[in-house]
Design a protein around this nucleic acid. Sequence first.
DNA 1: CCCGGAACCTGAAGGC
DNA 2: TGCCTTCAGGTTCCGG
Length: 280
Amino acid sequence: MPELPEVETIKNDLRPELKGRRFTSVSILWPRMVLSGSPELLGEQLIGQHIREVARRGKYLVFRLASGQALVLHMRMTGSLLLRSASESSPDERRYVTAVFGLDSGQELLFCDRRKLGTVALVDSEAGLDRKLGPEPLDRAFTTQKLQGLLAKRKAPIKAILCDQDVIAGIGNMYADEALFSARIHPLRPANSLSHNEIDKLRNAIIVVLRKGIRNAGASFSDYRRPSGNRGSQQNAFQVAHRGGETCSVCATPIVRIPVRNRGTYYCPKCQSDATCSGS
DNA sequence: CCCGGAACCTGAAGGC
DNA sequence: TGCCTTCAGGTTCCGG
């Protein structure tokens, strides 16, 4: 489940390898992953193009091309990117490959995706991404005041709002739970019920939790791998995410799992008091 | 506009 | 052992 820290790690790993490289071949094994036109057209337009920059916006990985176009990839839940010398990938790695991008370095970029939900699109501009995504939580512009504005008038559970890409770009199920635990806020609290102090704590928690995730190269609970094939280590550092039944590191109360918008949500019932409490 | 639920996707895991 | 059900969660769509 690549969220912001996972995609950021992929970007950081790929950038030095791919910057300045040229696409020499494109092979789409799962046609439905291509959102822009046909797989054939994607290949036609991509082959020969140089990669000017590797970037990230929210959970999207963006290859900025010399032509001004951009190749935009999304891993969804089970997607990963492996960078391998041509034909050096193992059968295990090949098993779920949905696309192969050949490069003039002799390397191959493999899009691996067990559930085939990942997507790729060649776009003329990144403006479409900016239109549909909220602010980057690690930008300076993501202030407490900004977050307060985003949460105002939203009465849905704060957990659901944090995962809404229109509100903030890049936070998903795992890091939302971690940020709420760190800020000691119950996941079911209506977003507009948070006090200014709580919003301030939440903003700081979001930033700290995401930065820690990046420092640990992301969380490899299931399919996520770095382009080298290595795992991240953030899964070992989570306080509550995917830790149902284990004891809270602060108060030893068992971590509870509840559905919020049909998503598994982990929290400490003592540290994150209750949903009706309006905080201090 | 806002909210919640369903659908999409398919392998893994667990029950019997 | 094997069949069946349930689960996973990012995004998109739809109805209220």
